[in-house]
């Protein structure tokens, strides 16, 4: 870029300073002064009001403002302290704008670089220092020190290897590839743990369910980890209106089917089921699965069908799992080839 040497219009230089009203009119200055002091005087009043609210207004008092029903204490504490803070700021700015001298000043800029002499001196000093260190003559000192410094990071990094257990194939089989479902485990309603009778389910019904074994898990972590994978939805559709592949004929009873509630995209729980289209929508990223067609993906970013849980009934007519899930639930991961999961068109 060309430096502006020959400008078409010459620089007229800084504009002349113009005085403000408050500079030339003593009455205007006094008015500004009174306003600023007035704002500062509002602060103690607001602070007192804050104290009154803090000690005087009960937690459960309510306040109707702009047609909304608000928590009086929280709102008033905020209004008083917020306005007080704002007053301080506005007063300071008003002071600076109207009463402090507003003559602009001009400073010099210097390039970011140091003067050449200084640079040369530092380079010379560096040379002297390097020479004095003897590194030039005994070369291994430098390499050795650099190598040692690099290697000393190794223990630091390796100590992080216990951040978590290693997902070896054996551990994966115990954790992300396994759920609480197993042969004969009853399907029970989430929250109330009521067992589900096949004969009670109506066409069009959706039940958010979990395995009965979940209720007995005392440990909070194991409970959450168990539920995070074992949550399922149970739906009943008209058997004549759905497609059941041959391999899954005995995974359902009279149109009662059960699917994992965990999206195969990034693992949100999904239960937005449209009973007429039989589509199940994930509220996080809108992947849509067709429950009338073995849970294949019909829309959105998910790549794998929703895993189906094979179910049957026990001797009392309650729904039980026929086995665990045949594929891991939740998002795909690198080590497992998911290409053999159920796809549209499989039998």
């Amino acid at each position: 870029m060309s430096e502006q040497k020959n400008l078409p219009v010459p620089d007229p230089g800084l504009e002349e300073h113009e005085h403000r009203f408050t500079d030339v009119n003593e009455a205007a200055a006094d008015r500004a002064y009174r306003q600023i002091v007035g704002m500062l005087a509002a602060v103690p009043v607001l602070v007192l009001a804050f104290l009154f609210v803090y000690f005087g207004v009960p937690k459960d008092a309510e306040l109707v403002l702009f047609g909304a029903n608000l928590q009086m204490q929280t709102t008033l504490l905020g209004l008083t302290s917020g306005l007080a803070t704002l007053m301080i700021g506005v007063a300071a700015i008003a002071w600076a704008r109207s009463l402090m001298s507003d003559e602009e000043i001009v400073g010099e800029r210097h390039g970011a670089a140091s003067p050449p002499e200084a640079r040369e001196r530092v380079l010379a000093d560096l040379e002297t220092g390097i020479e004095a260190s003897g590194i030039r003559r005994r070369k291994l000192l430098g390499t050795g020190m650099a190598g040692a410094l690099g290697l000393i990071a190794v223990p630091a990094l390796v100590s992080l290897a216990d951040l978590g257990p290693w997902p070896t194939p054996a551990l994966r089989a115990e954790t992300i590839e396994r759920t609480l479902w197993a042969e004969g485990v009853r399907l029970v309603n989430d929250v109330s743990y009521l067992p589900l009778k096949a004969s009670d389910l109506e066409v069009g019904q959706l039940v958010n369910a979990v395995p009965e074994t979940l209720e007995k898990i005392e440990d909070g972590t194991a409970f959450q980890q168990g539920k995070a994978k074992a949550a399922i939805i149970v739906v009943r559709m008209d058997p004549n209106s759905i497609k059941i592949p041959d391999s899954r004929k005995d995974w359902q009873i009279n149109g009662i089917l059960s699917y994992s509630k965990i999206c195969t995209h990034v693992g949100c729980p999904i239960s937005l089921w449209e009973q007429q289209t039989h589509h199940l929508l994930c509220p996080c990223h809108q992947s849509t699965f067709d429950l009338a067609n073995s849970g294949v993906v019909v829309f959105g970013p998910a790549a794998r069908s929703l895993p189906q849980l094979p179910i049957t009934t026990d001797s009392e007519g309650y729904l039980v799992a026929r086995s665990g899930f045949t594929v891991p639930v939740g998002p795909s991961y690198f080590e497992r080839d998911s290409s053999k999961d159920f796809k549209e068109g499989d039998r």
Binding site: N189, L201, E202, G204, Q205, L206
Partner: peptide, 8 residues
């Protein structure tokens, strides 16, 4: 969907 008395 239906949420029938059997479950709720």
């Amino acid at each position: 969907p239906v949420f029938a008395a059997g479950a709720i």
